[in-house]
Write a protein that binds this DNA or RNA. Structure first.
Lengths: 204, 204
DNA sequence: TTGGATCCATTTTTGGATCCCA
DNA sequence: TGGGATCCAAAAATGGATCCAA
Protein backbone atom coordinates (compact mmCIF):
# COMPACT_ATOMS: atom_id res chain seq x y z
CA UNK A 1 0.00 0.00 0.00
CA UNK A 2 1.47 3.31 -0.97
CA UNK A 3 -1.37 5.69 -1.82
CA UNK A 4 -4.24 7.14 0.20
CA UNK A 5 -6.93 5.84 -2.14
CA UNK A 6 -5.81 2.23 -1.75
CA UNK A 7 -5.62 2.45 2.02
CA UNK A 8 -9.07 4.02 2.20
CA UNK A 9 -10.51 1.18 0.09
CA UNK A 10 -8.88 -1.45 2.29
CA UNK A 11 -10.03 0.30 5.44
CA UNK A 12 -13.55 0.75 4.15
CA UNK A 13 -13.47 4.53 4.57
CA UNK A 14 -15.00 6.69 1.87
CA UNK A 15 -12.83 9.36 0.31
CA UNK A 16 -14.01 12.89 1.08
CA UNK A 17 -15.59 14.74 -1.82
CA UNK A 18 -14.01 18.00 -0.75
CA UNK A 19 -10.68 17.08 0.83
CA UNK A 20 -9.97 20.64 1.84
CA UNK A 21 -13.04 20.57 4.03
CA UNK A 22 -12.14 17.26 5.66
CA UNK A 23 -8.95 18.34 7.32
CA UNK A 24 -8.83 15.55 9.86
CA UNK A 25 -9.58 12.76 7.40
CA UNK A 26 -6.02 11.56 6.91
CA UNK A 27 -5.38 11.44 10.62
CA UNK A 28 -8.43 9.25 11.19
CA UNK A 29 -7.62 7.05 8.21
CA UNK A 30 -4.11 6.28 9.40
CA UNK A 31 -5.23 5.82 13.00
CA UNK A 32 -7.81 3.22 12.03
CA UNK A 33 -5.51 1.51 9.59
CA UNK A 34 -2.94 1.08 12.34
CA UNK A 35 -5.55 -0.12 14.79
CA UNK A 36 -5.55 2.69 17.31
CA UNK A 37 -8.27 2.18 19.94
CA UNK A 38 -11.45 3.97 18.91
CA UNK A 39 -11.70 5.79 22.22
CA UNK A 40 -8.14 6.99 22.28
CA UNK A 41 -9.52 10.45 22.94
CA UNK A 42 -9.78 9.40 26.54
CA UNK A 43 -6.13 8.46 26.66
CA UNK A 44 -3.10 10.69 26.51
CA UNK A 45 -1.60 8.96 23.48
CA UNK A 46 -3.11 7.11 20.52
CA UNK A 47 -1.55 3.81 21.54
CA UNK A 48 -1.72 3.84 25.33
CA UNK A 49 -0.06 0.45 25.61
CA UNK A 50 2.98 1.77 23.77
CA UNK A 51 2.83 5.40 24.78
CA UNK A 52 2.96 6.33 21.13
CA UNK A 53 1.27 9.37 19.61
CA UNK A 54 0.41 9.18 15.90
CA UNK A 55 0.68 12.22 13.61
CA UNK A 56 0.28 12.51 9.88
CA UNK A 57 2.76 14.96 8.41
CA UNK A 58 1.99 16.71 5.12
CA UNK A 59 5.19 16.82 3.06
CA UNK A 60 6.08 18.12 -0.40
CA UNK A 61 7.55 15.98 -3.17
CA UNK A 62 10.98 16.34 -1.59
CA UNK A 63 9.73 15.07 1.74
CA UNK A 64 9.83 18.42 3.48
CA UNK A 65 7.01 19.20 5.94
CA UNK A 66 4.52 21.73 4.62
CA UNK A 67 2.66 22.57 7.82
CA UNK A 68 3.07 22.96 11.53
CA UNK A 69 1.91 20.09 13.75
CA UNK A 70 -0.88 20.34 16.30
CA UNK A 71 0.16 19.11 19.74
CA UNK A 72 -2.66 19.73 22.18
CA UNK A 73 -5.05 22.37 23.40
CA UNK A 74 -3.85 25.02 25.80
CA UNK A 75 -5.68 25.36 29.10
CA UNK A 76 -4.66 28.63 30.70
CA UNK A 77 -5.31 27.52 34.26
CA UNK A 78 -3.91 24.03 34.04
CA UNK A 79 -0.72 24.91 32.24
CA UNK A 80 0.21 27.55 34.79
CA UNK A 81 -0.21 24.94 37.50
CA UNK A 82 2.02 22.41 35.78
CA UNK A 83 5.60 22.70 34.60
CA UNK A 84 7.01 21.12 31.44
CA UNK A 85 7.69 17.81 33.16
CA UNK A 86 4.08 17.28 34.11
CA UNK A 87 2.58 18.94 31.05
CA UNK A 88 0.19 17.40 28.60
CA UNK A 89 2.42 18.70 25.81
CA UNK A 90 5.45 16.77 27.01
CA UNK A 91 3.43 13.57 27.33
CA UNK A 92 2.16 13.94 23.79
CA UNK A 93 5.63 14.62 22.43
CA UNK A 94 7.52 11.96 24.38
CA UNK A 95 7.16 9.47 21.54
CA UNK A 96 5.58 10.40 18.22
CA UNK A 97 5.21 8.33 15.08
CA UNK A 98 5.18 10.78 12.16
CA UNK A 99 3.59 9.37 9.01
CA UNK A 100 4.58 11.55 6.03
CA UNK A 101 1.85 12.08 3.45
CA UNK A 102 2.66 13.49 0.06
CA UNK A 103 0.62 16.63 0.00
CA UNK A 104 0.58 19.18 -2.79
CA UNK A 105 -2.37 20.82 -4.47
CA UNK A 106 -1.44 19.47 -7.87
CA UNK A 107 -1.64 15.83 -6.76
CA UNK A 108 -5.08 14.24 -6.81
CA UNK A 109 -6.07 13.43 -3.25
CA UNK A 110 -6.46 9.66 -3.68
CA UNK A 111 -3.08 9.43 -5.45
CA UNK A 112 -1.08 10.98 -2.67
CA UNK A 113 1.52 8.60 -1.36
CA UNK A 114 2.19 7.50 2.18
CA UNK A 115 5.80 7.80 3.22
CA UNK A 116 8.00 5.80 5.54
CA UNK A 117 7.08 6.60 9.15
CA UNK A 118 9.55 8.31 11.43
CA UNK A 119 9.58 7.52 15.13
CA UNK A 120 10.51 10.61 17.11
CA UNK A 121 11.81 10.67 20.65
CA UNK A 122 13.27 14.04 21.63
CA UNK A 123 17.01 14.19 22.05
CA UNK A 124 18.27 16.02 25.13
CA UNK A 125 18.84 19.11 23.00
CA UNK A 126 15.40 18.96 21.44
CA UNK A 127 13.75 18.50 24.79
CA UNK A 128 15.68 21.47 26.13
CA UNK A 129 14.35 23.60 23.27
CA UNK A 130 10.81 22.42 23.88
CA UNK A 131 11.09 23.04 27.58
CA UNK A 132 12.50 26.52 27.08
CA UNK A 133 9.68 27.47 24.72
CA UNK A 134 7.09 25.95 27.03
CA UNK A 135 8.47 27.86 30.00
CA UNK A 136 8.52 31.09 28.02
CA UNK A 137 4.91 30.60 26.90
CA UNK A 138 3.60 29.56 30.29
CA UNK A 139 5.57 32.34 31.91
CA UNK A 140 3.73 34.91 29.83
CA UNK A 141 0.42 33.33 30.70
CA UNK A 142 1.34 33.40 34.38
CA UNK A 143 2.10 37.10 34.10
CA UNK A 144 -1.17 37.70 32.29
CA UNK A 145 0.68 38.64 29.10
CA UNK A 146 -1.91 37.20 26.76
CA UNK A 147 -1.53 40.12 24.36
CA UNK A 148 2.08 39.28 23.58
CA UNK A 149 1.44 35.55 23.40
CA UNK A 150 1.43 35.34 19.61
CA UNK A 151 2.67 32.65 17.24
CA UNK A 152 5.98 34.51 17.15
CA UNK A 153 6.89 33.25 20.60
CA UNK A 154 8.94 30.04 20.74
CA UNK A 155 11.72 28.61 18.59
CA UNK A 156 10.23 25.15 18.02
CA UNK A 157 6.98 25.18 20.00
CA UNK A 158 4.42 27.90 19.40
CA UNK A 159 0.86 28.80 20.38
CA UNK A 160 -1.80 29.57 17.78
CA UNK A 161 -5.59 29.96 17.70
CA UNK A 162 -7.60 26.73 17.64
CA UNK A 163 -11.30 27.14 16.95
CA UNK A 164 -13.95 26.76 14.31
CA UNK A 165 -14.46 30.51 14.16
CA UNK A 166 -12.42 33.49 15.17
CA UNK A 167 -15.27 34.61 17.37
CA UNK A 168 -15.04 31.50 19.54
CA UNK A 169 -14.30 32.13 23.20
CA UNK A 170 -13.73 29.89 26.15
CA UNK A 171 -14.06 30.89 29.77
CA UNK A 172 -11.11 30.89 32.09
CA UNK A 173 -9.82 32.94 35.01
CA UNK A 174 -6.78 35.12 35.47
CA UNK A 175 -4.19 34.73 38.23
CA UNK A 176 -6.52 36.47 40.68
CA UNK A 177 -9.40 34.18 39.86
CA UNK A 178 -11.32 36.83 37.95
CA UNK A 179 -13.38 35.46 35.03
CA UNK A 180 -11.78 35.81 31.63
CA UNK A 181 -13.16 35.07 28.16
CA UNK A 182 -10.36 34.06 25.83
CA UNK A 183 -9.76 32.74 22.35
CA UNK A 184 -9.15 28.99 22.36
CA UNK A 185 -5.49 28.26 21.65
CA UNK A 186 -3.26 25.25 21.11
CA UNK A 187 0.39 24.23 21.06
CA UNK A 188 1.98 23.49 17.66
CA UNK A 189 5.38 22.30 16.53
CA UNK A 190 6.91 24.68 14.03
CA UNK A 191 7.41 23.33 10.52
CA UNK A 192 11.14 23.95 10.74
CA UNK A 193 11.34 21.68 13.79
CA UNK A 194 9.56 18.73 12.22
CA UNK A 195 11.67 19.29 9.10
CA UNK A 196 14.75 18.81 11.24
CA UNK A 197 13.25 15.67 12.75
CA UNK A 198 12.60 13.98 9.42
CA UNK A 199 16.00 15.08 8.10
CA UNK A 200 17.74 13.44 11.04
CA UNK A 201 15.77 10.27 10.44
CA UNK A 202 16.99 10.10 6.86
CA UNK A 203 20.59 10.30 7.98
CA UNK A 204 20.23 7.69 10.68
CA UNK B 1 -53.42 28.27 27.06
CA UNK B 2 -53.68 25.80 29.87
CA UNK B 3 -52.48 22.40 28.58
CA UNK B 4 -49.18 21.15 27.24
CA UNK B 5 -50.63 19.98 23.93
CA UNK B 6 -51.98 23.42 23.07
CA UNK B 7 -48.74 25.17 23.94
CA UNK B 8 -46.74 22.70 21.87
CA UNK B 9 -48.99 23.30 18.87
CA UNK B 10 -48.64 27.07 19.21
CA UNK B 11 -44.89 26.78 19.64
CA UNK B 12 -44.50 24.42 16.73
CA UNK B 13 -42.87 21.72 18.82
CA UNK B 14 -43.86 18.12 18.26
CA UNK B 15 -45.08 16.13 21.21
CA UNK B 16 -42.75 13.29 22.18
CA UNK B 17 -43.99 9.80 21.36
CA UNK B 18 -42.52 8.40 24.54
CA UNK B 19 -42.76 11.19 27.11
CA UNK B 20 -40.93 9.17 29.71
CA UNK B 21 -37.90 9.12 27.45
CA UNK B 22 -38.03 12.84 26.73
CA UNK B 23 -37.41 14.05 30.24
CA UNK B 24 -36.25 17.51 29.28
CA UNK B 25 -39.04 18.19 26.82
CA UNK B 26 -41.23 20.28 29.11
CA UNK B 27 -38.34 22.45 30.17
CA UNK B 28 -37.45 23.23 26.56
CA UNK B 29 -41.09 23.81 25.63
CA UNK B 30 -41.66 26.36 28.36
CA UNK B 31 -38.32 28.06 27.73
CA UNK B 32 -39.07 28.59 24.07
CA UNK B 33 -42.62 29.63 24.70
CA UNK B 34 -41.41 32.31 27.09
CA UNK B 35 -38.73 33.45 24.67
CA UNK B 36 -35.59 32.50 26.52
CA UNK B 37 -32.48 33.12 24.41
CA UNK B 38 -31.49 29.98 22.50
CA UNK B 39 -27.94 30.13 23.81
CA UNK B 40 -28.87 30.57 27.42
CA UNK B 41 -26.60 27.64 28.19
CA UNK B 42 -23.75 30.06 27.97
CA UNK B 43 -25.34 32.34 30.54
CA UNK B 44 -25.84 31.75 34.20
CA UNK B 45 -29.61 32.19 34.08
CA UNK B 46 -32.20 31.58 31.39
CA UNK B 47 -33.10 35.26 31.14
CA UNK B 48 -29.78 37.03 31.62
CA UNK B 49 -31.36 40.47 31.30
CA UNK B 50 -33.62 39.71 34.24
CA UNK B 51 -31.42 37.32 36.16
CA UNK B 52 -34.28 34.84 36.18
CA UNK B 53 -33.87 31.07 36.10
CA UNK B 54 -36.78 29.06 34.68
CA UNK B 55 -37.78 25.67 36.13
CA UNK B 56 -40.73 23.45 35.38
CA UNK B 57 -42.08 21.79 38.49
CA UNK B 58 -43.98 18.52 38.21
CA UNK B 59 -46.93 18.68 40.64
CA UNK B 60 -49.77 16.32 41.50
CA UNK B 61 -53.44 17.21 41.19
CA UNK B 62 -53.26 19.01 44.52
CA UNK B 63 -50.39 21.16 43.36
CA UNK B 64 -47.75 19.43 45.45
CA UNK B 65 -44.31 18.94 43.86
CA UNK B 66 -43.60 15.35 42.89
CA UNK B 67 -39.87 15.53 42.26
CA UNK B 68 -36.70 17.20 43.39
CA UNK B 69 -35.37 20.08 41.28
CA UNK B 70 -32.05 20.04 39.47
CA UNK B 71 -29.94 23.10 40.24
CA UNK B 72 -26.56 22.72 38.56
CA UNK B 73 -23.69 20.33 38.12
CA UNK B 74 -21.15 19.91 40.86
CA UNK B 75 -17.52 20.56 40.02
CA UNK B 76 -15.35 19.19 42.80
CA UNK B 77 -12.46 21.54 42.21
CA UNK B 78 -14.42 24.71 41.56
CA UNK B 79 -16.84 24.37 44.42
CA UNK B 80 -14.06 23.91 46.95
CA UNK B 81 -12.50 27.13 45.66
CA UNK B 82 -15.71 29.12 45.98
CA UNK B 83 -17.95 29.71 48.96
CA UNK B 84 -21.74 29.93 48.85
CA UNK B 85 -21.70 33.63 47.98
CA UNK B 86 -19.71 33.10 44.81
CA UNK B 87 -21.19 29.73 43.93
CA UNK B 88 -22.95 28.80 40.75
CA UNK B 89 -25.72 27.28 42.87
CA UNK B 90 -26.50 30.56 44.60
CA UNK B 91 -26.59 32.42 41.30
CA UNK B 92 -29.02 29.89 39.87
CA UNK B 93 -31.25 30.06 42.93
CA UNK B 94 -31.22 33.82 43.45
CA UNK B 95 -34.39 34.23 41.40
CA UNK B 96 -36.32 31.26 40.03
CA UNK B 97 -39.60 31.17 38.15
CA UNK B 98 -41.23 27.83 38.94
CA UNK B 99 -43.83 26.78 36.37
CA UNK B 100 -45.98 24.01 37.85
CA UNK B 101 -46.98 21.27 35.44
CA UNK B 102 -49.70 18.82 36.32
CA UNK B 103 -47.90 15.54 36.21
CA UNK B 104 -49.38 12.17 37.06
CA UNK B 105 -49.15 8.93 35.16
CA UNK B 106 -52.89 8.69 34.70
CA UNK B 107 -53.14 12.00 32.83
CA UNK B 108 -52.41 11.87 29.10
CA UNK B 109 -49.27 13.86 28.43
CA UNK B 110 -50.80 16.43 26.08
CA UNK B 111 -53.67 17.05 28.50
CA UNK B 112 -51.50 17.98 31.43
CA UNK B 113 -52.20 21.49 32.60
CA UNK B 114 -49.80 24.34 33.14
CA UNK B 115 -50.18 26.03 36.50
CA UNK B 116 -49.71 29.58 37.68
CA UNK B 117 -45.98 30.36 37.89
CA UNK B 118 -44.36 31.11 41.22
CA UNK B 119 -41.48 33.56 41.42
CA UNK B 120 -39.05 32.47 44.10
CA UNK B 121 -36.47 34.65 45.80
CA UNK B 122 -35.01 33.08 48.93
CA UNK B 123 -36.00 34.63 52.22
CA UNK B 124 -33.19 35.21 54.71
CA UNK B 125 -34.14 31.99 56.44
CA UNK B 126 -34.24 30.00 53.22
CA UNK B 127 -30.89 31.34 52.14
CA UNK B 128 -29.42 30.44 55.50
CA UNK B 129 -30.64 26.87 55.04
CA UNK B 130 -29.20 26.70 51.55
CA UNK B 131 -25.91 28.14 52.68
CA UNK B 132 -25.64 25.72 55.60
CA UNK B 133 -26.26 22.73 53.34
CA UNK B 134 -23.84 24.03 50.75
CA UNK B 135 -21.15 24.55 53.35
CA UNK B 136 -21.72 21.07 54.74
CA UNK B 137 -21.51 19.51 51.28
CA UNK B 138 -18.47 21.46 50.16
CA UNK B 139 -16.84 20.86 53.52
CA UNK B 140 -17.02 17.11 52.97
CA UNK B 141 -15.59 17.49 49.51
CA UNK B 142 -12.76 19.59 50.87
CA UNK B 143 -11.98 16.86 53.37
CA UNK B 144 -12.10 14.24 50.66
CA UNK B 145 -15.19 12.66 52.21
CA UNK B 146 -16.75 11.65 48.93
CA UNK B 147 -17.92 8.33 50.38
CA UNK B 148 -20.24 10.00 52.87
CA UNK B 149 -21.47 12.58 50.39
CA UNK B 150 -24.79 10.87 49.69
CA UNK B 151 -28.22 12.29 48.98
CA UNK B 152 -28.90 12.08 52.71
CA UNK B 153 -26.73 15.12 53.34
CA UNK B 154 -28.51 18.49 53.45
CA UNK B 155 -31.89 19.64 54.70
CA UNK B 156 -33.03 21.47 51.57
CA UNK B 157 -30.13 21.17 49.16
CA UNK B 158 -28.71 17.75 48.31
CA UNK B 159 -26.23 16.13 45.95
CA UNK B 160 -27.17 13.21 43.72
CA UNK B 161 -25.69 11.40 40.72
CA UNK B 162 -26.14 13.10 37.35
CA UNK B 163 -25.24 11.01 34.34
CA UNK B 164 -26.67 8.94 31.54
CA UNK B 165 -25.23 5.76 33.00
CA UNK B 166 -24.03 4.72 36.39
CA UNK B 167 -20.69 3.86 34.89
CA UNK B 168 -20.04 7.45 33.79
CA UNK B 169 -16.97 9.07 35.29
CA UNK B 170 -15.46 12.50 35.08
CA UNK B 171 -11.87 13.37 35.86
CA UNK B 172 -10.98 15.64 38.73
CA UNK B 173 -8.23 15.97 41.31
CA UNK B 174 -8.19 15.64 45.07
CA UNK B 175 -6.93 18.27 47.50
CA UNK B 176 -3.34 17.21 46.80
CA UNK B 177 -3.78 17.55 43.07
CA UNK B 178 -3.77 13.79 42.48
CA UNK B 179 -5.98 12.65 39.59
CA UNK B 180 -9.38 11.31 40.59
CA UNK B 181 -12.09 9.64 38.53
CA UNK B 182 -15.48 10.36 40.04
CA UNK B 183 -19.15 9.89 39.33
CA UNK B 184 -20.72 13.08 37.92
CA UNK B 185 -22.96 14.71 40.53
CA UNK B 186 -25.31 17.66 40.77
CA UNK B 187 -27.08 19.84 43.30
CA UNK B 188 -30.83 19.36 43.72
CA UNK B 189 -33.51 21.08 45.78
CA UNK B 190 -35.40 18.59 47.91
CA UNK B 191 -39.06 18.12 47.08
CA UNK B 192 -40.07 19.21 50.57
CA UNK B 193 -38.31 22.54 50.03
CA UNK B 194 -40.03 23.38 46.75
CA UNK B 195 -43.30 22.24 48.33
CA UNK B 196 -42.79 24.86 51.02
CA UNK B 197 -42.05 27.45 48.37
CA UNK B 198 -45.25 26.89 46.40
CA UNK B 199 -47.28 26.71 49.63
CA UNK B 200 -45.99 30.11 50.71
CA UNK B 201 -46.87 31.52 47.32
CA UNK B 202 -50.46 30.36 47.67
CA UNK B 203 -50.76 32.14 50.97
CA UNK B 204 -49.24 35.40 49.76
C1' DT C 1 6.28 31.90 4.63
C1' DT C 2 3.71 31.56 8.30
C1' DG C 3 0.60 33.58 11.75
C1' DG C 4 -3.96 33.67 12.28
C1' DA C 5 -8.27 31.52 10.77
C1' DT C 6 -10.86 27.78 9.84
C1' DC C 7 -13.12 22.94 8.99
C1' DC C 8 -15.02 18.26 10.44
C1' DA C 9 -15.79 14.27 13.74
C1' DT C 10 -16.24 12.66 18.18
C1' DT C 11 -16.40 12.84 23.07
C1' DT C 12 -17.49 15.21 27.14
C1' DT C 13 -20.07 18.40 29.68
C1' DT C 14 -24.06 20.89 30.77
C1' DG C 15 -28.96 21.81 31.01
C1' DG C 16 -33.51 20.10 30.76
C1' DA C 17 -35.44 16.83 33.95
C1' DT C 18 -38.07 12.10 35.32
C1' DC C 19 -37.76 7.07 36.24
C1' DC C 20 -37.91 3.32 39.44
C1' DC C 21 -36.68 -0.14 42.83
C1' DA C 22 -35.25 -1.32 47.52
C1' DT D 1 -40.55 7.51 49.30
C1' DG D 2 -36.72 9.25 47.98
C1' DG D 3 -31.90 8.03 46.87
C1' DG D 4 -29.64 6.44 43.17
C1' DA D 5 -30.05 5.72 38.22
C1' DT D 6 -31.20 7.17 33.91
C1' DC D 7 -32.79 9.65 29.38
C1' DC D 8 -32.45 13.28 25.57
C1' DA D 9 -30.73 17.66 23.33
C1' DA D 10 -27.53 20.99 22.69
C1' DA D 11 -23.25 23.20 23.56
C1' DA D 12 -18.54 23.03 24.49
C1' DA D 13 -14.23 20.85 24.41
C1' DT D 14 -10.94 17.98 22.20
C1' DG D 15 -8.51 15.63 18.52
C1' DG D 16 -7.67 15.26 13.72
C1' DA D 17 -5.50 18.76 10.97
C1' DT D 18 -5.16 22.25 6.60
C1' DC D 19 -6.39 26.78 4.52
C1' DC D 20 -5.08 31.29 3.10
C1' DA D 21 -4.09 36.25 2.99
C1' DA D 22 -0.66 39.49 3.82
Amino acid sequence: VSAIGELAAISGMELPKEPKRAKGYLGRLIERALGAPADSNAAITDFPALGVELKTLPVDVDGRPRESTFVCHLNLKLCVESDWESSRAREKLACVLFVPIESARDIVFAQRRIGVPVLFRPTLEQEALLRADYDEIVGRIGRGDLETLTAHVGQVLQVRPKAARGSARTRSTDADGAPLSVMPRAFYLRTAFTAQIVQSALLA
